[in-house]
Amino acid sequence: MEVDISEGLLALAPKLGFATVSEVQRLSAGASMETWAFVAEGPEGRQEMILRRRPGPFDEESARSTSLATEAALITAAHAAGAPVAPLVRLCQPEDGLGEAHITMRIAGETLGRKIVTDPRFEAIRPALAGQCGRILAQIHSIPPGAMPLKSADAIGELDRYETLYRSFGTERPILELAFQHLRKHAPEPMPEVLLHGDFRNGNLIINESDGVAAVLDWELSHLGDPAEDLSWLCVNSWRFGVSSKPVGGFGDYQDLLDGYAAASGIEIPLSRVRYWQALGSLKWGVMCLLMYSSYASGATTSVERPMIGRRVSETEIDLVNLLEAGL
């Protein structure tokens, strides 16, 4: 069903506490999720907002990602825990006519990883980001999952899942093979599960010059698991945007991240645990790159992006070899 987004938002404006809506603009061209920017205006002023909506059907039970209703609950809970988010304005209801969707405030700042690690305007704030990320992750991990329908994942479960995918491609990549075997043999003792963001990395953070991290975006991969999974995903070299000498997101150092986390949570996570999960993160990203290529190879998609991303597997392989050489 085609939905007229402008019309739907215009009709919704009074429920948002505004008279009208303008400047409706599609931001992302993703097939599974749409992002729209718009401006709500009324006697009390104007407010920039973001509409996220899923155009197709969705089954939360079988999906890896959460529903937008769960995402809205996560954003609200993270806000209450003190983590910076784009606050929820409305979880859309069937009578809103916009389908599965939610509306949040639009937060000003930069999300492009490359700019965050190189642009001179972030030079002053950059050294503070790793510690801030540690504190924010501690806040997120303190959220009680309550009734949210989140799935659990531990290291062995993740290895099983991604190894099954890898085997399905029928390819022989010795470094990925070695990484599966090595990580299986060296899995750390399980820790109590916490609520994870699930995709906490440079690229999903809005950064500005005054606040540093102004908002954490993209909550749809949230799940329950090992706190080191979230801490390490931010350190995977693929998200350092060329500044590999700064292990945390291309902007900071491990110790600042871990100190920030310990100060806010009281929990000391050893670097070795982060490095283990970082290797698992590189391995997962490598398999995801193979998955994106396979959607081209099978004829399911035709975009030139998909086969090209298959050539990013080698970046995860060189990172894995370096991690293994360093004893993780």
């Binding site: 070299n237 500044v243 590999s244 000498s245 990013r312 060189i318 370096n322 991690l323």
Partner: peptide, 13 residues
């Protein structure tokens, strides 16, 4: 990597 992404920086990974 020299073929796929010659500018990929992997030092310190």
């Amino acid at each position: 990597i020299a073929i796929d992404q010659p500018n990929y920086s992997a030092t310190g990974s």
